[in-house]
Design a protein around this nucleic acid. Sequence first.
RNA 1: GCCUUUGUAGCUCAGGGGUAGAGCACUUCCUUGGUAAGGAAGAGGUCCCGGGUUCAAUUCCCGGCAAAGGCUCCA
Length: 647
Amino acid sequence: MKIDVTLPDGTVRSYDEGATAMDVAKSISEGLARNVLAAKVNGEVRDANRPLPRNCSLALLTWNDAEGKSTMWHSSAHLLAEAVEALYPGTKFGIGPPIEQGFYYDIDLGERTIGDGDFAAIEAKMKELASKKLVFERRAVPKAEAIAYFTDKGDEYKLELLEGLQDGEITFYTQGNFTDLCRGPHIPDTGSIKAVKVMSVAGAYWRGDEKRKQLTRLYAIAFPKQKELDEYLVLLEEAKKRDHRKLGKEMDLFTFSERVGAGLPLWLPKGAALRERLIDFMKTAQEEAGYVQVATPHIGSKQLYVTSGHWEKYGKDSFQPINTPQEGEQFMLKPMNCPHHCEIFASRPRSYKDLPLRLAEFGTVYRYEQSGELHGLARVRGFTQDDAHLFCRPDQVKEEFLKVIDLVLLVLKALNFEHFEAQVSLRDKEDRSKYIGSDENWEKAEQAIIDAAAECGMKTVVEYGEAAFYGPKLDFMVKDALGRRWQLGTIQVDYNLPERFELEYVGSDNAKHRPVMIHRAPFGSLERFIAVIIEHSAGRFPLWLAPEQAVILPVSDKFVEVAQGLAKQLKALKIRTSVDERNEKVGRKIRDAELAKSPFMLVVGEKEAADNTVAVREHGQGDLGSMSTVAFAAMIQERIKEQLALA
RNA sequence: GCCUUUGUAGCUCAGGGGUAGAGCACUUCCUUGGUAAGGAAGAGGUCCCGGGUUCAAUUCCCGGCAAAGGCUCCA
């Protein structure tokens, strides 16, 4: 009997019955066979050494496929477990899945602990075991036998996992001396695991439940080549160098104070100016797009949030109400601006002719985050949103989405983000009971979002079931210079708040209608956005945003006055500049200016003083030669225009 | 909040039961210079906070605070 195997390119090959994916690989080339980690058979990832079903489609998975990679990491987790069991006999095992960057295994060491100092020994053991090319053997096991095995071993975690499994669907995988309850699939043998690194150790609750026992989680990563591990470590180093917390300190942008409180950033002059520039940029763009600015206080009565529903949903996990001393009234620090904006909408009768009404505010909001969740500027307890709420008619949703997408694209361009996609979150296809708002409106809005994203030519991913209960949304997923993904910018339809605040407008039919509300924040929060752009740009901000655009370096004390005159000229032309008046040599001043990431350095000495020119040096580019002061200013302004898409 | 790690000069970090260390930054002086570190001298500390052990604690122990990583990615 022969079986037919269809390969991804459409070719059909014939094999003897019982052939495995590995056999197919070998028939194509030895090199391919060496690299095969797993196989995708009829869309399902399986062991490469399992016999293929008759007439199937087959894709051979290697390190270059996401699924091949995660299979390798999953197998590496088993290898980690084997090493740990060898070094720490009696260890009990929880789960050990692959993750985005590597894998982990949750283990219970009893009274023992593992620290950074133990990693090297674990890595050495893993490498030793891996080099034996231990084969991963799959075996279907009756439930009773599986229970007997782990009872005998004394591993209560595996026993608990077994409870949730049906007899007949249980499989064991064994490599070397280690047998694990596992669905698989796995790589053929441990030989392809050439480089491993234990990254960190952390506590993790069994089954993610904080009431249950905390296990020790070992994070690690593995590669088929030492070189790839080295490159990965270099990338981590680069990420560390770009860490916004480090750069923020070096560049005097912001700081934190224990006395002020954790998660409450203090903006230093240069950082505050940076914020202002971002705000100005957005205000200008919003003004053109027909927004109006509003301003609302930092607190609001508790009743406001009872009305909005936020009290019920987030009340006990928020900063608790502030009480007035005399009347005992309760106020909340505002966790969002929308309830205030709803009241502005409701402050007078609205006609359909007033819509869309676009209320914008750089509103600072306060949210309680658990102390362990705080992270530099990326996760704080007080932050400013570039918030706006668009009140419109259902038929205006698409138009408004288009305009907001334009705004976000403008932001992404101005900050040199080149890789991004739209993630559209829609209702669950099956269960529609958990959503508020009419079916008709939802369908209209969902279609409007999809159409708007398509019209803008955005790469779009649609996620069903990811919508909030109050409406569908579109998020921008952005890749930074190191290939890390961030969620920036969000546009959300909301049917809930207009309902709760009983917002209305008078239609052309002279009847009352409920407006649709759209929340949107292109930056998201200024704090988080700045964290991302610091890391994306490694602190080398686009010229229009840079704290200082040019630093003037007099060749010696004799030319300080000339330099000051030049600074005055440039400032009049709206170029941010300063003079390095220190009694140092030019070489030293240049070095310091390069390290400070000043975009341009202007060297002035006898020659420049004589003919009113500047010797221009660009950061990271070197000497650009001399030009007149006017020409330099024009060049800067030209570059900024281009960057901001104003040209 | 919980687990692991960390907390020493403005910054980066070494050290260690008995008077506190380096490099950079800072101050002063010398030097007056042309595209990535000129030279010298000096100043700078509640060794995170509180308690305990000790003749003696920055060091060891306990507690707190803050920071970093993790606690979602289901054998």
